[in-house]
Design a protein around this nucleic acid. Structure first.
Lengths: 242, 242
DNA sequence: CGAGTTCTTGACAGTGATCAAGCGACGTGG
DNA sequence: CCACGTCGCTTGATCACTGTCAAGAACTCG
């Protein structure tokens, strides 16, 4: 096996269990490596793909951190998601063969390029991969349902608490701390994601900090009282029966 | 061909071009009929599936009108979509083998039950069906991206204008009027969908009516000035270059 | 070190929520 | 056919949360 093929092999990737299905034997795994055509570097601030670009591939994030966002005719921007290692982006492009959002690297990143034709072809051969692709898309649908609940029903504090808990949970699944994180995005980007203005994000951080729930210093955040955060995110109705 | 098989055949369904892929020859079409196991009636107010139900099937709406909604631990409800004939619901269940939302019939309805195992099996055999399933899921992701933009960035009037335009456009694609519609949902359900309260929906309807943009009488809505609605939905920045 | 970006904080304003009351439509049963 | 009750809708008055505008501080990076 040459160093080259070694480099792009899913079978040797430490993120495999995050972005690929389990239950493959070694022989299948070799075939699965064909999904990934190559790797691609994206510098901080650069776009992996942009609204209107032809859709050819899905991308599995190997390292780095992305945001996806859409923008209006009148210039308003909505961040639709933040993605980290092991997550898949580009699903938006399937329906129209063109991407409908921008994917911007918030730090230097590397992605595995998975030509969608390969994905579909191997999906026909491997039911477990087919199921996996379906699950990834379904997961994104369910995530966005949750976002609709946030944006439609929750107040600023609840949104930010939910955001922090979600972020730290995903980082923890990747071996990082359960209580400390460094934000890769600005207050404005958090605000866009949560349907709030950057000043509101800043104020809410300050309030959480005053209440001793978190410690904030610029991009660094330490969660001091996770239970308090969970309570903010999911306020129990007083004297709830049962 | 017995009347029974005739009844559930996609090949004879007038909604085929809405919910099934094009580009099938007659022979393939016969096989494709195997996707649909049976039809199922849902009375107004009944649930097709509920949060927590085991996921087994996708459903293609033949007649009727549905809402899908999720609810919080503390009882807040978010309508995540309204679905009409030719649209597919149930995609939320794939990721966890359980549904994560409720699907409620807003009028008496009939759905085609498509066991997901059938869908996956036939998808492996027919690339055109496989691609179609992927597109349906991607379309839902893109729709929800647009909802995030609405909920995160738009004001009440813009949301309601966008909602009406979207609804009438989908109805028109099904052969109904471009300008008149009968709402199948309450003001409260519209509000939940749009992240607003029912009073705001009512007030905004009244304002549109006073401005001569629409005519409203309870559930009946007539769009008098579609251009004005589009302008509300998508306000051009003053003196926009180009 | 300096320019530009990002963040914080204050004062004030505005949009939509909340609370409240009454109206209108619809369906049922007398 | 009409009385009545329920549910959905409208409208008004007031309030609260978040947005807007502004100024300055802190941080980053060339």
């Amino acid at each position: 096996m040459t160093p080259d093929t070694f480099k792009v092999a899913c079978s040797n990737c430490n993120l495999r269990e995050l972005c690929m299905p389990v239950g493959f034997d070694n022989q299948d795994m070799k075939k699965l490596d064909e999904v990934v055509a190559k790797r691609h570097q994206v510098k901080q601030g650069q776009m992996l793909f942009a609204n209107g670009d032809e859709f050819t591939s899905l991308y599995a994030i190997r390292t780095g951190f992305f945001k996806t966002c859409i923008s209006n005719e009148d210039g308003r921007e909505q961040v639709t998601g933040f993605q980290m290692a092991g997550e898949i982006i580009g699903l938006d492009g399937i329906v129209s063969d063109r991407h409908s959002c921008n994917a911007v690297a918030l730090e230097d990143a590397e992605v595995c390029v998975m030509p969608f034709a390969n994905v579909e072809e191997l999906s026909r051969e491997f039911p477990v991969l087919q199921r996996h692709v379906h699950k990834i898309m379904s997961r994104e649908i369910v995530r966005e349902n949750g976002m609709m609940m946030m944006l439609g029903n929750m107040r600023a504090e609840e949104r930010l608490a939910a955001f922090l808990l979600n972020l730290v949970q995903r980082l923890h699944a990747r071996g990082f701390s359960q209580s400390e994180l460094v934000l890769r995005m600005t207050r404005e980007e958090i605000g866009s994601y949560l349907g709030l203005k950057l000043e509101t994000i800043s104020r809410t951080f300050s309030k959480f900090s005053e209440d001793g729930v978190i410690e904030v210093k610029q991009r660094y955040v330490k969660i001091l009282n996770p239970d308090a955060l969970k309570k903010i995110f999911n306020p129990q109705p007083c004297h709830s029966k049962l």
